[in-house]
């Protein structure tokens, strides 16, 4: 049996020094190639969970395994490198460095991930191909990212997440800044490209209507218990 894409076991985590959230997640897993929609209201610990999966924060207890690697066991530098190599991240909005060209934005994760760069082959060509497949104009690569429309920026963010085909794509409410019509097109493109790359997709949203497209819908309150220390 192949390694799962994501496996969380007995996670305990609280934000350091912050009178905020602490969170426990006994178990959560994703198979390879699976697409999972995580539903939850804001403040329910979704973003914290994503930070844990991405290895930006480390759990106080339990283990986070991504693509078979226990990232809690990695040193901080190795964890950052691991994230660059294996995970593509898409935010809600403001995904791109506004002052940089689109091509630099797309190639940025490769800068920290030599193996992923090698997988991508000719990185410039790969970026151009992704842009074309995402329906972005041909000359967009040399445009400053800050000049793009929000919809275009989100598609560029998809291209950046997918370049070099990382095994896991993590998306934090990527459609919330888009209007209904562009949402659909965006999700079509996202799914098509994720499948083409053979990546797993973990997406967080508060919008249950999106659920139909996913292999599985998980409610955050079913896997995570949170408490606020300050209250």
């Amino acid at each position: 049996m192949p390694e799962p894409a994501v496996a969380l076991t007995d996670i305990v985590f609280s934000w350091p020094g912050r009178a905020g959230l602490s969170l426990a997640c006994p178990t959560f897993g994703m198979a390879r190639g699976e697409s999972v929609l995580l539903i939850g209201a804001s403040g329910s610990g979704k973003s914290t969970l994503l930070s844990l999966v991405c290895g930006i924060v480390v759990a106080d207890g339990g283990s986070v395994a991504v693509d078979g690697t226990d990232i809690g066991a990695l040193r901080a530098g190795a964890r950052d490198r691991f994230r660059a190599e294996r995970i593509g991240v898409i935010f809600q909005q403001f995904n791109l460095l506004p002052y940089a060209h689109v091509s630099d934005n797309i190639l940025l994760p490769l800068h920290f991930a030599p193996e992923r760069r090698a997988r991508a082959g000719d990185a410039g060509q790969a970026a151009a191909r992704l842009c074309a497949e995402l329906g972005l104009p041909r000359d967009i690569l040399t445009t400053q990212a800050g000049r793009l429309s929000v919809g275009q920026q989100q598609r560029v963010a998809v291209a950046r997440a997918l370049i070099g085909a990382p095994p896991l794509i993590v998306a934090d409410e990527p459609t919330s800044a888009l209007d209904a019509a562009t949402q659909d097109t965006f999700l079509d493109l996202l799914f098509r490209q994720t499948e083409a790359a053979g990546s797993s997709l973990l997406m967080v949203s508060h919008d249950e209507r999106l659920g139909a497209r996913f292999d599985r819908v998980v409610r955050i309150e079913d896997i995570v218990t949170t408490e606020s220390r300050a209250a």
């Binding site: 930006i56 530098g77 991240v89 940025l108 994760p109």
Partner: peptide
């Protein structure tokens, strides 16, 4: 700070 978060998410170390 948003920009820094992007860098971090792309795999940049805090040292970077």
């Amino acid at each position: 700070r948003r920009e820094m978060a992007i860098w971090r998410a792309m795999g940049a170390r805090p040292a970077t």
